[in-house]
Amino acid sequence: MNHAISDALVITKRQLLQLSRVPEVLIFSTIQPVMFVLLFRYVFGGSIDSGQPGGYVQLLMPGIFVQTVAFTLVATAAGLAEDMKKGLIDRFRSLPISRGAVVIGRTLGDALLNILVLAIMAITGYVVGWRPTSGMFQITLAFLFLFMFGYALSWIGIFVGLSIKDARTVQNVGFIVTFPLTFLSNAFAPTTGMPRVLQYFAEWNPVSSMVAACRQLFGLENEFGATANSWPSQNPLATSLIYMLLLMIIFIPLSIRKYKNTSA
């Protein structure tokens, strides 16, 4: 059992080493969100009338934060699928290491990468005028939420990666699923403009809860689309927390078990 943690950390360290050896990955995974911040801020920022003091960027940043961490799912799944294809997972599975170590290590590695990415985005946001108005405690809590959300999704990523086993397919499927999920939400535009069915979906979408929760924690009054008086839109913090815990309770054991039983 004491090895479980140290084994996982060796796997995590390997991922960080990879980043230092192939810096393109790191550069790409940070440029993308920075690009989003700039595009949305300057392309749509002028035309979307948010009615928000401080401008659209205040509403936009939480949306981009959540969208970016949501893509952890794809990153984790693709990374794992790649390791399986290369036969590396076979090697790990033939070693006397604790069974959960490989997948725990990977989720930790992706979580660490998220910290860095979130920090870079926060700085970019600040540069283009994002100014959270709440206190230090709430801001920290918001980032903790984002971090946890990414971590929870990472565990779904493990399950997806083990199921699909092919990095490229994983990436395609991941984007096809994750893109609509992040856009069918309150992240970039109010849900009030959507057809009734989509609006309903958007209100219950975990991405919306997370975005609303972050907005609240960053000190925004206007939750931008919380109109249907649904429970999630009234209680974004609680909803997000429940979603995250639920995902982890389901997917951590499920993914570890799947890892044990999977053969590449």
Partner: peptide, 13 residues
């Protein structure tokens, strides 16, 4: 175990 396909991390040294 040494597999049919070299199972090492190719990005690392």
């Amino acid at each position: 175990l040494s597999g049919q396909y070299a199972a090492v991390d190719e990005t690392l040294t």
